[in-house]
């Protein structure tokens, strides 16, 4: 089954990006986490009919994506992966909200279409921001930063342990599914009985592995608290990054940048 396969190679490809070097990569993970959270909050705080004033956020994101050397193809793939959901969720807006709110030349724009476009913009911005965070920081560092910022310890440990075993378990699952489909070439998915036993076996194997890992942990002195050595170094660049980003986000959110630039341009043209 290719689904397991692609899932894990997606995860791996994203994490590989995090091993590259760039000014964005070098920032403290905590700084990036905080700025990403602020960015997401800013995006979703826009009123639902506001479309044009969100465009400055693209400016910011595009600069960071380029600085972070995130390949455009990866971004496109990531957006594509998630877009059916956003489309589905927004599709009802034009149907339900038919109030005309403005005219663009001969074109009557309804509130529904405006909020639909706004949803698409929100979707693009939030998804790209998460991709940027992950691809420039790496999953493990994001988790460690979460821990440093006060997330429950056990939760952070669980994030890390899950990540480690996803690679092993999906691999095992893939081998089992392959063995099944080789003997049942006509059935794409295992029927319920076969699935139950397949997943059951996978579960038992996982359980046994859990116990072996436990033994291996005990053998190295594990006592129930996981100690993480990873230390971060907050530098001036991080302070500047957080301050600059916050400033820009505030300006973008409340400064009516796009309208001003538009008016200014038209004034020049006139």
């Amino acid at each position: 089954m290719t689904r397991l396969d692609t899932a894990i190679s997606d995860v791996d490809a994203l994490d590989r990006l995090a091993t590259r070097g760039s000014p964005i990569h070098r920032l403290d993970p905590r700084a990036k986490l905080v700025v990403t959270a602020l960015f997401l909050l800013t995006v979703v705080s826009y009123p639902k009919y506001n479309v044009v004033e969100m465009t400055p956020l693209f400016l910011y994101l595009a600069a960071l994506l380029a600085l972070g050397r995130i390949p455009a193809l990866m971004l496109a793939r990531y957006l594509l992966l998630a877009c059916p959901f956003a489309l589905l969720a927004g599709l009802f807006n034009p149907l339900i909200d038919r109030q005309v709110v403005t005219y663009l030349g001969p074109l009557a724009v309804t509130g529904g279409w405006l909020s639909f476009v706004s949803i698409l913009i929100r979707f693009t911005l939030t998804v790209s921001a998460v991709l940027l965070l992950l691809a420039s920081t790496g999953y493990v560092a994001v988790c460690a930063a979460l821990g440093k910022l006060g997330a429950p310890r056990l939760l952070v440990i669980q994030f890390l342990m899950l990540y480690r075993f996803i690679f092993i378990l999906t691999d095992e699952a893939e081998r089992m599914v392959r063995a099944h489909s080789l003997r049942n070439p006509d059935e794409p998915n295992p029927p319920l009985r076969a699935w139950g036993s397949l997943a059951g076996h996978l579960l038992l194997r996982a359980y046994d592995r859990g116990q072996r890992v436990h033994t291996a942990m005990l053998a190295r002195g594990f006592d129930g608290t996981l100690r993480l050595p990873q230390g971060f170094h907050w530098s001036m660049a991080d302070t500047l990054f957080v301050a600059g980003s916050s400033g820009f986000l505030l300006l973008a959110r409340y400064g009516h940048l796009a309208t001003r630039i538009g008016q200014w341009t038209m004034e020049l043209a006139a």
Binding site: V140, L160, M161, Y163, R164, F165, I168, R209, R212, V213, T215, A216, M217, A219, R220, G221, F222, D223, R227, L228, P229, Q230
Partner: peptide, 28 residues
């Protein structure tokens, strides 16, 4: 007594090799 288990996947449970090697000393 240092034990090296049959399946290294069971022994390497931390996110990176470095953290895995540090696991024992940190527990000490």
């Amino acid at each position: 007594v240092g034990t090296i288990f049959q399946d290294p996947n069971d022994q390497l449970f931390m996110p990176t090799v470095e953290e895995d090697v540090a696991f024992g000393p940190l527990n000490m």
